[in-house]
């Protein structure tokens, strides 16, 4: 769950192009959007094949302390989940700690980590899409080059190493389109367990932040098998966070 804004588009490999391996390309792509501490307000539109629209709104704050990134996600809409807050302690080398505060329960509850392949808030995005991928879980390969939206991109494939990793992430492999000029990723194609194209993610509206990193204000995910499409728009964003560490604690969730 580290850094909700960072997409799982950064896939490492051993294939070399222009003396860069897929791993190196992905690493640079990761670095390009690693904004560090941040706060943001996002809206997710979920549209089914009939055009019905559902809207989710969340606010997120993330801050790193030593080897742990602490993240708060507060649900603002729809009304039935308004006020619910999720607190995640994301560690590099151990299982995450998670707590949830639901106003109806009137207490903070420690919960177990959700499956990565599960839908994020009922959208086409999965929890894995919201997370930074673990590089050791994939085999990487540069499978070609393509002009995408007038940009020359590498096509980098990441393939799940085991069936268990497939099941956890909800896909067998994916191909990322990474800009050769600035290492920004503009598109990711996800393939299901049978190797068929399942979901296509597009990433737009990158803006350079004060710290030199890039942030994408618009992302869309289309399920090409069902016709459902979800769009995540960042309404407000800032690098850094004014929140004190005491806010990132279970005791503060009830406030």
């Amino acid at each position: 769950m580290k850094q909700i804004i960072i997409l799982s588009v950064l896939l490492l490999g051993s294939f070399s192009l222009f003396s860069q391996t897929a791993e190196e390309i992905s690493k640079k792509s990761t670095d390009a959007i690693d904004v560090g501490n941040m706060e943001m307000v996002s809206t997710i539109h979920i549209r089914d094949a009939k055009g019905n629209d559902r809207v989710r709104q969340i606010t997120t704050a993330s801050k790193t302390y030593g080897d742990v990134t602490k993240m708060l996600i507060k649900f603002m809409a729809p009304a039935d989940v308004k006020g619910t807050i999720l607190l995640v302690y994301d560690y590099e080398n151990q299982t995450d700690n998670m707590w949830v505060y639901m106003p109806a329960l009137r207490k903070v509850r420690r919960i177990v980590s959700s499956e990565k392949g599960k839908s994020f808030m009922g959208s086409e995005f999965t929890n894995a899409d919201m997370s930074k991928p673990s590089s050791i879980d994939f085999d990487y390969q540069t499978v070609g080059s393509e002009i995408y939206n007038d940009r020359s991109c590498w096509e980098i494939e990441s393939k799940c190493k085991t069936e268990a990793i497939q099941n956890e992430n909800g896909f067998s492999r994916c191909v990322s389109f990474i800009d050769k000029a600035n290492y920004l990723c503009y598109k990711v194609e996800f393939f299901d367990f049978e190797g068929k194209l399942h979901r296509v993610q597009t990433i737009d509206n990158y803006k350079k932040q004060a710290n030199g990193k890039y942030f994408a204000y618009k992302m869309a995910m289309e399920n090409v098998q069902t016709g459902r499409k979800s769009e995540m728009i960042t309404n407000q964003f800032q690098t850094g966070s004014q929140l004190s560490e005491s806010v990132f604690t279970p005791a503060a969730l009830e406030k």
Binding site: V41, T60, Q236, Q242
Partner: peptide, 10 residues
């Protein structure tokens, strides 16, 4: 209070 984006957006 001093308000952050996270707090003020709520």
């Amino acid at each position: 209070p001093a308000q952050s984006l996270f707090e003020s957006a709520l």
